[in-house]
Design a protein around this nucleic acid. Structure first.
Ligand SMILES: NC(=O)c1ccc[n+]([C@@H]2O[C@H](COP(=O)([O-])OP(=O)(O)OC[C@H]3O[C@@H](n4cnc5c(N)ncnc54)[C@H](O)[C@@H]3O)[C@@H](O)[C@H]2O)c1
Ligand SMILES: NC(=O)c1ccc[n+]([C@@H]2O[C@H](COP(=O)([O-])OP(=O)(O)OC[C@H]3O[C@@H](n4cnc5c(N)ncnc54)[C@H](O)[C@@H]3O)[C@@H](O)[C@H]2O)c1
Lengths: 210, 210
DNA sequence: TGGAAGTTGATATTTTTTTCACAATGATAA
DNA sequence: TTATCATTGTGAAAAAAATATCAACTTCCA
C-alpha cells in the first residue's frame, strides 16, 4: 500500500469525521472561525471527550484558549477522508430513490461526484438526469472502466439486485452502497455498506414501545 | 414501565433482528422451513456465532439437527420488536426523498404504517400520495395527536428542519428519523436516529482509497 | 452398537469503542 | 505576580460488541 499517511481509524471515527465536517461548514457560514470540543459535541449529540479523542486520532491539536480552528480542521479532515484526485460514483437504478439521491448529492462534495447513472428502462436512458448522463445498464462495465468509477450506489428494483451486483463486480468496482432490501455478499477486497429505512424505523419502534 | 417482557437488547442486536426477519421472509418464499445459524450468517455477512448469540439474547432455541424453525423465529422477532397494536408513522416533507420513502415503505410491514404525510406546498397537500393522505404542515399537531402517531420521518428542506422538529416535539412525537443534513437535538425521552448518504459515501471513499 | 460429523447454547476471552479522570496549558483579572 | 478558570490531550478504566472455544446433543452410517 503506497499511501501510508492514513492512520488506521476506527470505522465509527471515520463516520463522525464526515459529520464533523458537515456541521463545521455550517459554523463557517455563520461566521465562526473557532470552535470548542463541547460546542462541536453539542451540535452532534456527542460528549466533548469523544470529539477530542477523534481529533487526537487524526493528529489535530487545538489551543486551550481558542479551541479548534475550523478551517484548518475542515482541511485536515479532507486530507484524511478525501482522496486527492477525487472519487467518482455511479448510481444504478433511476427510480424514485435513485433520482432523489442523485439530485441531492450532485454538487455536494468537491472530491466526490456522481459521474454516471444507469437504468434498463429505455425511457430513462440516453439523457441527462439531474445533470448526470444516464446510460443503459448494458453499458455499465464500459462506462465504469472508462470513467474510472470506483464506487456504486445500488437502487435498482429488488429482483435485479444480484444481476446488477455481478455486473458491478465484473467491472471491478471497489465499493458498493446497497439500498435494495436484498442483502449482498461481495469479495473481501470490495467494500460494502447497506442501509434500509425499514431497519431504522423498526429500531425506533422498538425503542418507542419500551 | 408496564411491559417488562422486553429484554434489554443491545442496539446492534435490534438492528440485526430486523434484518434477520427480512431475509427470513425471503427464505420462506423460497420454500424453506428451517435454517441453520451458518446459513443465516452467510446471508447477512455475519459469523454463525453472532447469529446464535443474538438469538440466545431473545431466548430462542433451535434444534441441533434441524436448526431454527423459520416461522417461529419470525414470530418471536415480531413479539420482540413490534408493538402489539402497531405503530403509526408520519413523513414530513413530500419532496423527492419523502415520496420515494413513502412509496417504498407503504404496505411493507404489518405493524408499522405510514398514516399521514405533510408538506407546506399547497400543490401537494389535501390529496392522496402513494395511498397516504397529505396534510398541510400547519395541521401537523392536530393530525398526529388524532391519529396517535408516535414516529416521524423528517425529509423537509434543510432550512425548515428546526421549525418542523419543534412542531413535532410540540405534538409529543416519541421518535424521529432525521434525513435532513441538519443535525437535531431532542429531549432525552424522544428517540432520534439520523442518516445521511453523504456519510456513507465518504466512509466508502475512505475505505476505497486506503 | 459405537463413533464420526455437524449442530446448538453458553461461558470465557478478545477486541473495539466510549467514558473517566486529571495533568498541563494558557488566558484573565485581582 | 498569583490565583482562578475553562480548556485540551491522553493514559487508564469501563462498557459494549464480537469472537473463540467447547460441552452436549442429534443424526447417520458403518
Ligand atoms: N434502503 C432504503 O431505505 C430504500 C428506500 C426506498 C427504496 N429502496 C429500494 O431501492 C430500490 C429502488 O426503489 P424505488 O422506490 O426507486 O423503485 P423504482 O421502481 O421507482 O425504481 C427502480 C428502478 O430500477 C430500474 N431497474 C430495474 N431493473 C433494472 C436493471 N436490471 N438494471 C438497471 N435498472 C433496473 C427500474 O427501471 C427503475 O427505474 C428498490 O429495491 C427498493 O426496494 C430502499
Ligand atoms: N439523508 C439522506 O441521505 C438524504 C438524501 C436526499 C435528501 N436528503 C435531505 O432530505 C430533504 C429532502 O430532500 P429532497 O431531495 O426530497 O428535497 P425536495 O426539495 O424535493 O423536498 C423538500 C420538501 O419539503 C417541503 N417543505 C419545505 N419546507 C417545509 C415546511 N416548513 N414544512 C413542510 N414541508 C416543507 C417542500 O415543499 C418539499 O416538498 C433535504 O433536507 C435533503 O437535504 C437527505
Amino acid at each position: 500500500m503506497a499511501k501510508n499517511k492514513i492512520p488506521d481509524l476506527p470505522g465509527k471515527t471515520v463516520e463522525r469525521l464526515s459529520q464533523y465536517r458537515r456541521v463545521l461548514y455550517n459554523s463557517i457560514e455563520e461566521g465562526k472561525t473557532n470552535i470548542y470540543s463541547h460546542e462541536l459535541a453539542k451540535m452532534m449529540n456527542l460528549t466533548p471527550v469523544q470529539v477530542r479523542r477523534d481529533l487526537m486520532l487524526i493528529g489535530y491539536s487545538g489551543s486551550q484558549s481558542k479551541g479548534y480552528v475550523i478551517k484548518d480542521l475542515i482541511a485536515l479532515i479532507g486530507q484524511i477522508i478525501d482522496s486527492e484526485e477525487g472519487e467518482k460514483i455511479a448510481v444504478v437504478g433511476m427510480g424514485n430513490l435513485g433520482r432523489a439521491i442523485t439530485s441531492y448529492f450532485t454538487g455536494k462534495r468537491e472530491k466526490l461526484s456522481i459521474a454516471a447513472v444507469f437504468d434498463n428502462d429505455p425511457q430513462k436512458t440516453d439523457r441527462i438526469i439531474s445533470g448526470v448522463p444516464c446510460h443503459h445498464v448494458n453499458q455499465l462495465k464500459e462506462v465504469i472502466q472508462k470513467e474510472n468509477i470506483q464506487i456504486a450506489v445500488l437502487t435498482v428494483a429488488p429482483e435485479a439486485t444480484h444481476n446488477v451486483a455481478k455486473m458491478l463486480l465484473d467491472a471491478e468496482i471497489k465499493g458498493i452502497l446497497n439500498y435494495t432490501s436484498v442483502p449482498l455478499t461481495v469479495p473481501e477486497n470490495v467494500h460494502l455498506e447497506e442501509y434500509d429505512i425499514v431497519t431504522s424505523l423498526e429500531k425506533l419502534a422498538f425503542l418507542v414501545k419500551k
